[in-house]
Every structure is written in structure tokens, then in C-alpha cells.
Design a protein around this nucleic acid. Structure first.
Lengths: 102, 102
DNA sequence: TTGATAGGCAAGCGAGTACTTGCCTATGCT
DNA sequence: AGCATAGGCAAGTACTCGCTTGCCTATCAA
């Protein structure tokens, strides 16, 4: 569950894809491809991007809808909220009542 | 920069370590070790945990302070905020003024 | 000083990951 | 029909990553 999310974010190319989809939602595979090469000098094969999109989709960060021969990709930032909420609860101070220092 | 952060979060063991340090800040290496085995059934060598802590430290998520022969580890959630702020700006709708659908 | 405790360095191994290459399907235009 | 476009599937390769193992240093107690 959370595993897919963090694994998806681990790759810099995937993060760039998220950036691009955040700027403009609903892009097709080829559109994303050309944007990565144009704006980010990322000369990757179409397959590579397709695989990245699959990972992002498995993480729930991207949702794809098919229309005819086009497949549009949209971002879904909802899973990202879980990250912040996991560790942003205040940490207990160094001295914990339940346990003493070794 | 951001690379270290996301790479650090990519591993489930490291996330569990963050969980433990969030519950109780200022733990030593051995303390974290025993907690992982006791509470999470993670039978890892001390070296493995040490390496994980190094990665977390490189990401700025953990800060270590040495006192005598002990080394205490504290969480620093500050880098996590960057995640939320990166993609939580509203995405443009599918139709973008600057570019038409292919 | 001896021994035990807390931690560090570095080489090596197995599994996973990113990327390519080659081929195949489906939709749309003429 | 014929061809170009948009995308998918699968095998292969190079590299990274997590973990272990073995040995070494530093601090503290007896």
C-alpha cells in the first residue's frame, strides 16, 4: 500500500512526470515524452515513460482514462497527504516515561 | 537534495525507524535495533540498521549527536514539508490555454 | 590493564530496478 | 483497404540497493 507510494516517488524521473502532470493534467504518453525531452533534457524511450506511468498509477498518484486511441493521465495528489500526516505528529522528547536511557 | 529525501523514504525499514524515532526521539543504535526486532519482528543485523540511519541522516530526516560512547538519534520532520508543498498546488484543468490537445 | 559495550569501515553477494529493443494490437485518417 | 498514430507486452542487460560478514576503533567499568 504505502510501499507502492514511496517506491513511486523514489525515482527522479517519476517525480518530474508528476511535476509536468501537475502543471498540465490530462496529458497523453507521447505528450509527456516530448515534454521530458524538451524541458528536462531527458532522452528516454517511450517504453520507459510508459513503465514509469504504470508505477505512478499503481501508487494511485496518476489516474488514466482511455478515449479512443488516446490515454489521458491525471494526477491524484490524495495519497501524498498520508506522508505528511504519518510523521508530523510531535515526537516525544528524548526522555520517555515508559523507558529509561540504556 | 530531494533525491536523498525520497530515496530515504523508499525503504519500509527506514520508514519504520522513522516511526520508532517519532514515538521516542533520541534513541541509540542498539535501542533501535532491539525495538525493530521486538515490536516489528525485523531481525536485521546492527550494521543494516546503522546503514539505514546513515541514509536517513543524509536525507536530513535524522540528526545524530554523540555523547561519550553513545550516539543519540533525533527525527527532523522539516524535510517532509517540501513533499506536500511540491505537488499540492492545484493542477491546471485538462484544457490548457498554452497548448491544444494533440 | 583487561574486558565488555557502542559504534564504524569495507568488501562481497543476491535481488530488485530502470532502461532498451523488438514485436504486436487498436484506433483513426484518406 | 492501407497506412500512420497511440499504446502495450515481454525478454534482456547494466546497475543500484539492502544486507551480511569480518575486522577495527573508542569509551567506560572492574
Amino acid at each position: 500500500m504505502a510501499d507502492d507510494l514511496f517506491k513511486a516517488l523514489a525515482d527522479p524521473t517519476r517525480r518530474t512526470i508528476l511535476d509536468e502532470l501537475t502543471q498540465k493534467s490530462g496529458q497523453t504518453l507521447f505528450e509527456i515524452c516530448s515534454r521530458l525531452t524538451m524541458k528536462h533534457q531527458l532522452n528516454l524511450s517511450r517504453q520507459a515513460i510508459s513503465q514509469h506511468l504504470a508505477v505512478l498509477e499503481a501508487a494511485g498518484l496518476v489516474e488514466a482514462r482511455r478515449e479512443g486511441r488516446y490515454k489521458f493521465h491525471d494526477v491524484n495528489t490524495a495519497p501524498l497527504r498520508e506522508i505528511a500526516e504519518r510523521w508530523l505528529t510531535p515526537a516525544a522528547p528524548a526522555q520517555d516515561p515508559e523507558e529509561s536511557t540504556p
